[in-house]
Design a protein around this nucleic acid. Sequence first.
DNA 1: CTATGTAAACAAC
DNA 2: GTTGTTTACATAG
Length: 770
Amino acid sequence: MKSSPHRPLILKRRKLSFPHSDAASTLAGDEPSGQNVGSPKQEEAKPKEHGTNKTEPGNREVPVGGIKIIDHPTLSDAQVVAIPANTDVQSIIDALTAKGKESGSNGPSKFILISSGSPRMERREFKNLFKSDEEHSTAHDKAGEDEKYIGQSSALMEELLSMDGREPEENSSAETTSSVLDNSLTNIQWLGNMSSSGLSPCSVKKETEKENQTPKQKAIKAEEGSAASSSTTSWQESFSERPPYSYMAMIQFAINSTEKKRMMLKDIYTWIEDHFPYFKHVAKPGWKNSIRHNLSLHDMFVRETSANGKISFWTIHPEANRYLTLDQVFKQQKRHIPDLQKSMRGTSGRKNEPQAARRKMKPLLPRVNSYLVPIHFPLSQSVILQPSSKMPLPASQGASETMQSSKPVCIAPKVLPSSEEPTLLPAPIPIKEETCDGELSPFTSQQSIKQDACWISKESFAAALHIKEESDNFHSNTWAPQFLPTVSTKVEPEQLGEPPDIVLPAPPAKQKRPFTALKSPSRSKLDTLVIKRQERQEMGRSRRKQHLALPSSEEPVLLLQPTSRSESCTVGNDPPFATDTHPLESTSQFSCSQGEVIPFKSAIKEMFCKLPISSVPSKAPITTPAPFLATTDPWRLAPFVKETSDLLCSPVRTSPTSLISLQGNLDILGLGSTPLRPSLCDSPQLPLLNAETNDMVSGPLTSSPATSKQSSPELQASALPENHSFLEGLVLDTMNDSLSKILLDVSFPGLEDDNLGTDLSWSQLIPELK
DNA sequence: CTATGTAAACAAC
DNA sequence: GTTGTTTACATAG
């Protein structure tokens, strides 16, 4: 009852009913908590083994190839496996296998691997061992194993391997199929940072077991900080410390851990507790509130109600869902981390080194920024981003490490299609991605000076990347159909190094439903009902989902400008873009040739949602979609716009440009939970990128015929016809850990204002526009 | 300024 | 009491 002075009273809050409760059918069938969801609770059972495990009390060693297996001092069901530096994986496996046999079913379920030697190898190898991570594997239920990877402290790595698959966790990774051992390998859970011997008492039981991973980061931290000295402390901390994941990320992990990709709130809580002991044991109860808050806050989380309406599940909007799982993330981290750590440690003074850039890297799984944050990219931005030509892998590969290391692991929801967006097509368009792991490297590697910039840029970069993807999706989804002919997006995948563990989702689902109910009428099909979805408007300060609120001041920038510059917007040098003109906004807004400015921001939401009630409605109820909007899918924008006219300076025009702008806006707006961040332009990187751009373009990308990819101004001007608009950029695919360059070639004959008359116009392409 | 985290008020069950 | 929403405020970057 306290009334907070600050907080306005909520006069009324009304739940939206869903039209489709029928969808529930699906639900009904499904049990709420879902099979998958994991019945974390059940897991608890594990302990049973203990008794027997103890079979080998004391530190008994089971030497196998120099590998020592010792009972964990405090964990009854765990054993510590000391692995000599040069031990090969097979030996380890053999040792564990032998141990496992020896112990029988009752044996220890977990093994903590400690290697003093070259941890890296182990990982790698293990990694190899681990088979695929496909998530979809039903595995959840049973498979329980998770891998836990401990960071590699240079000193030691530890891994817990759960031998038995008992744990029901759903880790994606779990591929039950494999032998027990495999499973165990497969599931790596996080180990805390146990620094050293890691034998310290660990009260955490199952937690340990499950998948929490302690990010290496932690490990790193540990090292840095208090570190290891007291193993106990570190050990405990590992479990007690808060995971480096944001709530948003954890929720995603939880939901994606289930087969159906949906989870009830309660199960989410449970999953998190199970996987991150911190929340079970240390966190204040308020964390649940935070979870709920995040669910409500982020558009990517969609609540679906069972047919009967009694059960509500939380799902991740397909468009936004990267299907990340803890496992995947973990694996990724694995890859990257080593490098990072190296760099970090190795160079105690990181700064000095070129590596400095890295240093800046965010924690792999930063709770922060980019992590999991949906990034919306306005088309324009994409334009802005220019890949550096350098991207070529050369050094990169070698550098791959660097790259990776440098690369923050971002888990960003794929696209954040704005709720508005109707994204139907997943990837109809031919999109190629080229991921160059090495790509970044150039940046990093290059000049030291720049590196910093690079760094920064990187982050932004990452964002940009994501954005790009979005844009792709964006295009592909919404536009693709219409544009297909004309538009070609390419992303050329070049993965240097590793195959993506993560499978990019081309989520099947995508097609299904649009993020926002608003848009797609069709979505009705969905089994479940989507309850939420609204666009967000801006909110003043409060953060209700981020919207794209752009400062009114800023005006939309033309994506494709008629003027030579238009394309040139490219970052590079264009002062305008890059600099002030529309720093961020530029990305978000597009100006109509007319000069109209369309600020998207919050207005949009309102428009969509029409949420009279709350000033800042976050998610619009699906049901409410405006008719017109619904009809046209994606682009009901225009109409939309009109209404919003208030906000918009001018009514939307069908003019091609306008469309573009809209779209861009949409993106931005749309889901945009995340606001555009500082545009790429701003970031220092740009320059770098630009510079190279040309080359790049010419490179692989160019392969595509008609489409010219260059975004670089020069090129544009010279080479490109006005009609063509190219969006070129790099995409960082967190999932794959790779960088992708994407070229989006949107060429219309007459796109630009100047040319409008000429050939095709957007409107032509898209009837609706007219 | 943004993204996040946290606390809290409130609403609807 | 639980689940969801939405504010408000705080903090880190």
